[in-house]
């Protein structure tokens, strides 16, 4: 069947795991990684100043704030690691990975989706707690939010596949990890 060759999930009219679908998200994650790396290098005192075109000392306030230091490493470092895992989990696997490796697709969805919403929390905290805005932090948050929508369709395809696995009483565990022994048993 044509659907099999092209990796289009049943009941869909396109394949959410093609490179055309995934590369833009990986690209956004790479830009996010660049921004977060720059911010964390400032937080780690590698760079003495931070680029802030609009909000005066806003970036300084935000990037040296209590919230940014809540964890053992500055929040910029975590952001950079987050974007790196977004890019990696977006890149791993072939164009039928929604079926052949559900674990990576679901991990990708969780990294981009729920973790992306943390950036919204940080956007809220900037003005409410510190009366300051940080331009590059806002750019990073915008990238995180833009990535969510296009990443979710692939996760939906994987979750629907897992549903069909459950209905056909094939091992969910083996299907989730993409065991060769269960490949092809469920469409």
């Amino acid at each position: 069947m044509m659907n099999k060759d092209e990796g289009i999930p049943p009941g869909w009219n396109y394949n959410p795991a093609t490179w055309g679908q995934r590369l833009p998200i990986i690209g956004l994650a790479a830009v996010g990684f660049g921004i977060a790396t720059y911010l964390s290098l400032y937080q780690l005192h590698v760079f003495p100043t931070i680029w802030e075109p609009f909000f005066g000392n806003g970036s300084q306030k935000v990037l040296n704030s209590g919230v940014s230091k809540l964890l053992p490493v500055p929040d910029g470092v975590l952001g950079a690691l987050g974007y790196l895992s977004d890019a990696a989990s977006g890149a791993i696997g072939g164009t039928r990975r929604w079926k052949t490796m559900p674990w990576i697709v679901i991990l990708f969805g969780l990294l981009v989706g729920p973790l992306g919403m943390i950036s919204i929390l940080l956007v809220i905290l900037q003005p409410v707690l510190y009366h300051a805005w940080c331009t590059l932090c806002l750019c990073s948050a915008a990238i995180s939010v833009i990535m969510i929508g296009p990443a979710m369709d692939e996760m939906l395809a994987s979750l629907q596949y897992m549903r069909r696995v459950k209905d056909s009483e094939v091992s969910l565990w083996k299907a989730f990890w993409g065991y060769k022994s269960v490949q092809g048993k469920v469409i």
């Binding site: 999930p9 049943p10 009941g11 869909w12 939906l156 629907q160 897992m162 549903r163 069909r164 209905d167």
Partner: peptide
């Protein structure tokens, strides 16, 4: 088309399962 969408993950007799059965 999304095989019935998000509710098709838990709903009864979802569209994606019906189409899979036909393939």
């Amino acid at each position: 088309r999304f095989g019935g969408g998000w509710s098709a993950i838990w709903g009864k007799d979802p569209i994606h399962a019906q189409e899979a059965a036909r393939q």
